[in-house]
Amino acid sequence: MLAAVLAGLSVGVVSGCGPGVLTLGVSYDRPGLAIRAGNDFSGFDTVLGRDLARRLGHPGKKDVSLINVPERRTTPPTGELPYDVLVAAYPATDALRAKADLVGPYLSGVQDLAVRADERDAVSATSLAGRRVCAVAGSEIGRTAPTAFPGATIAYRSTLSTCLTELRRGTVDAVTDERLALRGYAAEQPFRGTIRVAGVSIATFDYYLAVRRKDPRLCGRVKDALTAAVADGGWARAYEEQLVRTGVTERVPAPPRAITGCTG
C-alpha cells in the first residue's frame, strides 16, 4: 500500500477544477489523516473535507478536487492559498493567517516521538541528547525541534515517510511529528512491528481549516458547515471511521467546543 501512496505523491490535481468544483488541499501520505493509494482516498481530513464540501453544495466526487499539500508544513506555497479550503492539520501560525482566513479548531493534536520497536528504554525529549532525531524540513515541529530536543542532532528530511524509513534502517534514533500521523504509519506496512510510538507529549496543537479569501462569503459558509458537522455527529463519525476503526487511536475525543473564525 505504501508504494501506491508514494507513487501518488507526484500527482497534484485529482479531478478537474472547472466551474462548481471545490478544491480541497489535503495530504497524500499521512495514514489515518489523509492518504492516497492509487485513485482511492481515505483519512479523517479527507472524509471531513468531503463532508464539508457536501454541506457547501458540492455533494459528488466530481464536485470536489483533492490537491496534494506539500510536506513543508509551516505554510502552503508562496502567494495566494492555492485551494478553496485547506484541510491538512495546519496549526494557526502567523504566516498562515497572512494568506488565508482560519476556521476552527477542527482537530487537536500532540507532538510525539517514534522509535524502533526493539528500543525498550524510556524515551523523552531530554533523553535523546547526543542522538539523531528526524523531523520534516520546513514544518512547525521541525522549526522548534532544536529547542524541544536539547543536545540532540536534528536530521531534516523532506517527508515523514523518509524519516521513518531512516528510523527502520538505524540512520536516525527517533522521529518527531504529529502523534496521529506517527500512529497511522506504525499501523501500516512496512513499518508495522518495526517502529513504535513512544506516547510522549512534547507539545500540543490546535489545527485549523484555512479558507481562500477570493470569495469573501466562503469563510462564513465553511464555519457554518464545520459547526453543523460537530453538532450533528458528522465530525465524530469521520473520526470513528478513519482513526478508531483503523486502529490509529483508541477512542473518539470530545469534538471542538467552539468554532471560531471569520467574524469571531
Rank of each mutant, 00 (worst) to 15 (best):
G109R: 04
R143V: 04
W235E: 06
L160N: 13
V26Q: 05
R54C: 06
D215N: 15
R73F: 03
A37F: 07
L6K: 09
G43P: 05
I141C: 05
A203I: 01
S15G: 15
G261D: 08
T176C: 10
A89Y: 10
G142S: 09
R131Y: 00
L102T: 02
D224S: 12
V11I: 09
L226Q: 05
V197I: 00
T93E: 02
G57F: 08
R237L: 01
F205W: 15
F191K: 02
G264K: 12
P190N: 09
K99A: 11
A129N: 10
D118Y: 05
A117W: 08
V211L: 02
R73L: 00
L48A: 15
T144N: 06
Y83K: 10
C262K: 08
A122R: 01
G32I: 03
K214H: 10
V14W: 01
P216W: 04
R196D: 03
E140Q: 14
Y106F: 13
P216T: 08
L6P: 09
S15W: 00
T23C: 04
L81N: 14
D177I: 11
M1V: 11
R54A: 03
R245I: 01
N39Y: 09
V252N: 03
K62M: 11
A98T: 04
G184C: 08
I141T: 12
V252D: 04
R116H: 01
R192L: 11
K223L: 12
C262Q: 14
V200K: 10
T194C: 05
S42G: 12
L128A: 00
K223V: 06
Y83T: 11
D101I: 07
G20S: 07
L86N: 11
R30W: 04
T46A: 12
D232Y: 13
V248I: 05
A125V: 13
F149R: 00
V11M: 00
E166H: 09
C17D: 15
E241A: 14
V252L: 08
A198W: 01
R50T: 11
D215V: 03
G20D: 08
V85W: 02
D173E: 05
A88L: 06
R217F: 13
V26K: 02
T263N: 15
T74E: 14
V13S: 15
E240M: 06
L66D: 01
T147S: 06
V123M: 06
E80F: 07
P82I: 03
E240N: 09
T246K: 10
